[in-house]
């Protein structure tokens, strides 16, 4: 059965506290932190972007599972913060991991769920026998306009999943998607920062799609929340995923291992995938995981995943929750310098 052969993540080292951002704009940091359920966010340094993140995460995935990069027949990178408007990130990633030239590659864009869209594309290609392995990466250095609500949450990070049939550490038993045309968040061509529809991003956008995606998958597979040991949801903040879990009938404790946003912010295309990787770091063979991503515009991809024997030997050396402990704080001035938000940079 098609599944995850290897996984890896990358989170940049720099952090800026929500408190520090609030201080600059004369807001109450403690209240914003509590409201969002986010304490601090990960920030890419001057010489990092979604391509360098994607390469780092993919290299971790390959190294930990030991798969031959030449067996990777497809590389899909999902991002909404591409370094080039025209020139695929996927070719640079493929070259850097040694998968080129006999393979296909493309970049995907679907706000925060482009990474899981890549997972589904890889599942199709692997299942049909077109490729041995597919690599799906979600990677973002999320943009937030200074003094916008997004500035407190927009973080950065990447997750890479190698999809294949042989030697899987977790099988993807089923997937289900729920998609509509919902204008909750967008960025126009050449615009520097995205815009969003404020409160409209919650009920008719995030919750409608995440809940429909999860319910659709449960119905399709004939399973109930009790059948799962872990639940991972897209996490634009620290609160939405826990509310989604409760609304679906999952105990909140099942969503905690995959809830990483409070420590690194919303990593957009990588968010649900990093959450899944954190669960794979601890899940035992036989345990079941529900993953539901969400991308504005809008849609959700839901996955039913069962952990396999032998996962212990193929886990990355450092678990997600340990890796994010290696950090260095910067103040707001350092943050705007590194993210090139100063006009003259």
């Amino acid at each position: 059965m098609v599944g995850i052969v290897g996984y890896g993540t990358y989170v940049p080292r720099m952090r800026v506290k929500v408190d520090e951002i609030a201080r600059v704009w004369g807001k109450e940091g403690a209240r914003i932190s509590k409201g969002l359920g986010i304490n601090e966010k990960a920030v890419a340094s001057f010489d990092e972007d979604s391509c360098s993140f994607a390469v780092e995460a993919s290299r971790v995935a390959l190294k930990s599972c030991g798969a031959d990069p030449k067996g990777i027949g497809a590389v899909f990178v999902g991002s909404e913060s591409k370094p080039y408007a025209v020139k695929p990130t996927a070719t640079m990633v493929a070259e850097a991991i040694g998968a080129t030239p006999e393979m296909t590659a493309a970049d995907f864009e679907f706000a925060c769920k482009a990474g899981t869209a890549g997972v589904q594309a890889c599942m199709g290609m692997v299942s049909s026998g077109m490729v041995k392995y597919g690599l799906a990466v979600g990677s973002d250095t999320a943009q937030g306009r200074p003094n916008d609500a997004l500035e407190y949450s927009a973080g950065g990070g990447a997750a890479a999943l190698i999809i294949g049939k042989e030697g899987t550490v977790a099988d993807i038993d089923a997937t289900y998607s729920f998609t509509t045309d919902t204008p909750d968040f967008w960025r126009r061509q050449h615009a520097e920062f995205p815009r969003h529809a404020g409160r409209f991003t919650a009920e008719p956008a995030y919750f409608k799609h995440v809940l429909s995606g999860a319910k659709g998958l449960l119905a399709k597979t004939g399973t109930k929340p009790e059948d799962y040991d872990f639940a991972v949801f897209h996490q634009p903040n620290g609160k939405f995923p826990l509310r989604a879990a409760t609304m679906l009938g999952f105990e909140e404790t099942k969503a905690m291992q995959g809830l990483i946003t409070p420590f690194i912010g919303n990593t957009y295309s990588a968010a649900a995938m990093i959450g899944l990787c954190s669960v794979l770091d601890v899940a035992k063979p036989g345990q079941r995981i529900l993953v539901v991503s969400y991308g504005s515009g809008a849609g959700s991809d839901a996955f039913k995943i069962t952990v396999k024997e032998g996962i212990e030997a193929k886990r990355p050396k450092v678990a997600v929750l340990n890796a994010i402990e290696d950090k260095e704080y910067v103040d707001y001035a350092g943050y705007v310098k590194h993210r090139r938000k100063i006009k003259s940079l």
Binding site: D47, E48, D49, S52, V55, E56, R59, P83
Partner: peptide
């Protein structure tokens, strides 16, 4: 001890 990483140059 150091290890290689991938960055913009």
């Amino acid at each position: 001890n150091v290890k290689m990483c991938f960055r913009r140059i």
